[in-house]
């Protein structure tokens, strides 16, 4: 079906308008609508806290690592994990969650104390991992938000 340039332009405007209307309708029909004034810039920390996870800072993380009671899970890619990780951390990259989780699940119980981390306070992979673990039935997850970069800078590899 051939179309003239003006028909193509009309089609573009039409598709954009229909998408806007359906997007707004889906928000209106949602049981948990996205607020217009949602403060995305307040950062990941607020989002982690709002999701109900406890945030661990570097000094607390160091204490927990020394204590050895928590299972520490690295949400970064295997390549990043292999370049350096927090002592005792196991890799659980979110890009390949299912495969790696099969290897970790046998040593977990529903109340196992877990800590997830990724690269830095700018990455959201630790939060995503924590949410996945909670969905899988492991709700006792803390998040070391400052991640590997802060650990490497303040404590060392």
């Amino acid at each position: 079906m051939k179309s003239s340039p003006s028909a193509t332009c009309f089609g573009i405007v039409y598709l954009i308008a229909v998408s806007l209307v359906t997007g707004l309708m889906s928000r209106g029909l949602s049981s948990d609508p996205l607020p217009w004034d949602h403060a995305w810039s307040e950062g990941l920390r607020e989002e982690v806290l709002a999701a109900g996870f406890e945030v661990v800072d570097t000094s607390e993380m160091r204490r927990l690592v020394e204590e050895g009671r928590h299972l520490i899970l690295d949400a970064r890619s295997m390549q990043e994990y292999d370049m350096g990780q927090i002592p005792g951390a196991m890799p659980l990259p979110i890009g390949d969650f299912e495969d790696h989780f099969l290897g970790i699940a046998p040593i977990l119980s529903p109340d196992s104390p877990l800590i997830a981390y990724c690269s830095s306070a700018e990455c959201d992979q630790a939060l995503i991992l924590a949410e996945r673990l909670r969905e899988a039935g492991y709700p006792n997850v803390k998040i070391y938000l400052d991640g590997w970069k802060a650990w490497n800078a303040e404590v060392g590899p």
Binding site: L15, I16, V18, S19, L20, T22, G23, L24, S26, R27, L34, P35, W36, D37, H38, A39, W40, S41
Partner: peptide, 17 residues
């Protein structure tokens, strides 16, 4: 921030249509 919310609501529907 304001554009993030609008884009998150609009863009997936544009992809779909």
């Amino acid at each position: 921030d304001g554009w993030v919310t609008l884009t998150a609501l609009f863009l997936p529907w544009l992809e779909l249509w």
